[in-house]
């Protein structure tokens, strides 16, 4: 039994066997050293590990910058000030503001002028009803007994 038949090959394969034998001989001459190949492989596999931390830090920094930018862009813009709201606020009066409307409060808010003693005149009718104050002097004399 030939070697070819032992391997389960069919007959008539000698020419192919020769072609492959030539190919094998050429490949063996060109084969790299086993040890060199393994050492190069070990060095190549260590290189990515050396830069792994730098790569991770760079990715984390990029992610943080992206997040900050995202938050900045996603923040809603300030609404324009509405004039109506300003007018409403400026016209607002406190419910207890009437307590400040006391007689003679203009004296506290105005400056006295030279020669003007009007502020010294005391209203004698202060505290009386308005109708009584407006009564003419003649009518008052007639009412006297």
């Amino acid at each position: 039994m030939s070697e070819s038949e032992e391997n389960g090959r069919s007959t008539g394969t000698e020419e192919l066997a020769q072609a492959f034998a030539q190919l094998r001989a050429e490949d063996r001459r060109a084969a790299p050293s086993f040890r060199d190949l393994v050492e190069r492989g070990v060095r190549a596999s260590e290189r990515p590990r050396r830069f792994a931390w730098a790569a991770r830090a760079a990715v984390a920094a990029c992610a943080l910058v992206g997040l900050a930018l995202g938050l900045l862009l996603a923040r809603p813009a300030r609404e324009p000030v509405v004039e109506g709201v300003v007018a409403e606020l400026s016209g607002w009066r406190s419910p207890t503001a009437f307590l400040l409307d006391t007689p003679g409060r203009e004296l506290a808010s105005a400056l006295p002028r030279l020669g003007d003693f009007g502020y010294l005149v005391v209203d004698a009718h202060a505290g009386r009803p308005k109708a009584e104050r407006a009564e003419p002097l003649k009518q008052r004399k007639e009412r006297r007994p």
């Binding site: 190919l23 094998r24 490949d27 063996r28 060109a30 084969a31 393994v38 492989g41 596999s45």
Partner: peptide, 27 residues
């Protein structure tokens, strides 16, 4: 030597590709 021939065949005759294949397999 046999493994290199096999790797070379898988790599379609590309020597550097065959070497990288073998490196990965050996590691």
């Amino acid at each position: 030597p046999d493994a290199f021939g096999w790797a070379l065949s898988l790599a379609g005759g590309d020597r550097s590709e065959a070497e990288e294949l073998l490196q990965s397999a050996y590691l």
